[in-house]
Nucleic acid binder design. Structure first.
Lengths: 341, 341
DNA sequence: TTGTAGGCGTTATCAC
DNA sequence: GTGATAACGCCTACAA
């Protein structure tokens, strides 16, 4: 379909100029049509569009970018070990949602995977104008520089960054509510000695889930001392679960802060001969594929990961279009009952 | 560190012109220094570099791209359901390797996630000059158009595409050897009724692993009829394993074509009360994190996923630099013994 | 070795 | 509404 003339096809791509000639108008007019300017007469617009179709014209991104001082690209920043990032279905879903939203926009998605010195190189990059905006997923307390950059380049965070002010836009779920939901399920089925495996406590999501858990326990008049911190990885969860069982042998339920980690917890429970949910009930978090593919289907707290990604991208696109957008975008969680609790 | 002058910082970025003035040379000379041209006297180069440092100059990508007719970007094409793609540790590792290689190059990585009509839109995009080259991972028989595009834009495939000719460059592991390795382990521990769960048989990798398996079985004088096809997903593996067990009740070993799928197989075996490896031995493929985080650590066929990604990016970068590169890049596999076989 | 000058394909600011 | 005419920032012959 593409007018592939030998090997030089790419370099001889049709230009605005050629379209203008073909339609007997000026370049300016073609530009207006291409950019959907309202002040173009219908007939002329038709003629131009015909010429565009005939020549199979596609605007040159570099030229447009140079003249307009925008890049038409958005950065997806992953300040985390890639393997862990992509290995967690939660993030996969977010990326999926982002891609889906961007698919029918003009924006390109640039993958930014800071390796060694995250902040400095990444910041330079973000400020360099290579991208018009940035999407930041997962971030620890240390990423203060990234958060501050929100004043220089439009960005949207996935998950509430620490110490937010009005200048940062983020999408998150109500992790406090999520933690309470999990604890309440465990209480509802009559468990008394309930523990929890948390995420890294320098991450707000992990802190909030724990806080929700504690709150429910307190309300129920139960101690909330059976807490072990992990790092959202399977290996970390395995170690934490072992510590927890050693310390609290009479544990009869546990809330694990991510489904992926819960698979590790299930493995340890099995190795220790504890039946799930009979001896120890387990509630996860995410409702990711890990929840259903585990040995025992997980009862878990659903969070709309894919939609969160979609919303993140949507907010950024609107931000770039100059529209005002809400700063706090909190999505709701809900319990999904399966077999583990 | 960046000379942030109010809010207009980004738009007032230093240009070649300004550097030239600062160093008392022409723009051409600065350009030469920036692009590492050999024909610049040391003193002048020093002066220019000093000016660059002083002004904190960074070349404008759009302008460079427009003038040089290259984009400085590479596309990572994922012709697959994103969730499945990112959910598989094998792909995560490849992306990791790619990012690592590209990190100390000038190239940007563009994520291309074709949603609806893969070939046409993607092809248009690739040919449009938005990227200088492309990296293609995972692909089914249908992606003929993508493969043909290799003549128009430099690309490197991860995994051997179907019906390759000399024009396509790819990185792959010796899947035939891998299949044999797996089968031989099972034979070595004395199993007689050995089956296999394959990947989608429109993927060369799946076909080759099966062929290797069959070859070893034949050599051993054993039947290779206990074969069930799956799709590299956990859910698919679970279904396939159930079919296999129903059809071949006396199965005493199974080679599963990916670790991720093997976790599904383990779950089914457990649900059917078969002990692993006592009743049924299991060998996986990949040696991904899934292999060690599963309930029973998997004996598996290691493939250097991260290195494959690194090599893919490396080959493409060299290709773009005009260097000749080998077309077939086959990496070796090896058995990793753990508990499942 | 270094400088000059033209052009890369768009957008944007003016007049008309 | 439409059309000239500058930029936008850099690369690259070609000259010097």
């Amino acid at each position: 379909m593409q007018a592939a003339i030998g090997s030089g096809a790419r370099s001889s791509a049709p230009t605005l100029e050629m379209v203008a000639r073909e339609a007997n108008v000026s370049r300016a007019t073609v530009s207006r049509v291409v950019n959907g300017s309202p002040k173009v007469s219908p007939e002329v617009a038709r003629a131009v569009n015909a010429a565009i179709a005939k020549l199979n014209y596609v605007p040159n991104r570099a030229a447009r970018s140079l003249a307009s001082r925008t890049s038409g690209a958005i950065a997806l920043v992953i300040p985390e070990d890639t393997t862990r990032f992509f290995g967690d279905p939660y993030f996969s879903a977010i990326v999926q949602g982002i891609a889906r939203r961007l698919d029918d926009s003009e924006y390109l998605l640039n993958l930014l995977v800071p390796t060694s010195d995250p902040s400095r190189k990444t910041m330079r990059y973000l400020k360099s104008g290579v991208v018009d905006g940035a999407l930041i997923v997962s971030h620890h307390e240390g990423d203060r520089s990234l958060r501050d950059a929100a004043r220089e380049i439009p960005m949207v965070f996935g998950g509430r960054p620490p110490n937010v002010d009005e200048s940062v836009v983020f999408v998150d779920v109500d992790n406090l509510e999520g933690g309470m939901t999990a604890a309440e399920r465990l209480l509802a089925i009559g468990r008394k000695r309930i523990g929890t495996i948390t995420g890294p406590l320098d991450m707000p999501a992990a802190v909030d889930r724990l806080a929700g858990f504690r709150q429910s326990m307190e309300t129920a008049g139960l101690p909330a001392d059976a807490v072990e911190e992990a790092d959202f990885s399977v290996a970390g969860a395995i170690a934490a679960t072992r510590r927890l069982l050693d310390r609290v042998p009479d544990l009869d339920a546990v809330f694990v802060a991510s489904d992926l980690m819960a698979t590790g917890t299930l493995a340890v429970l099995r190795e220790r001969g504890r039946r799930v949910p009979d001896d120890v009930a387990v509630v996860g978090f995410d409702d990711s594929p890990a929840a259903t593919s585990s040995a025992i289907p997980l009862t878990t707290v659903y969070q709309p990961s894919e939609e969160m990604g979609f919303l993140m991208a949507d907010l950024l696109v609107r931000l770039l279009a100059g529209e005002p957008v809400p700063h706090r975008n909190i999505m709701r969680t809900r319990l999904v009952r399966r077999q583990s609790a």
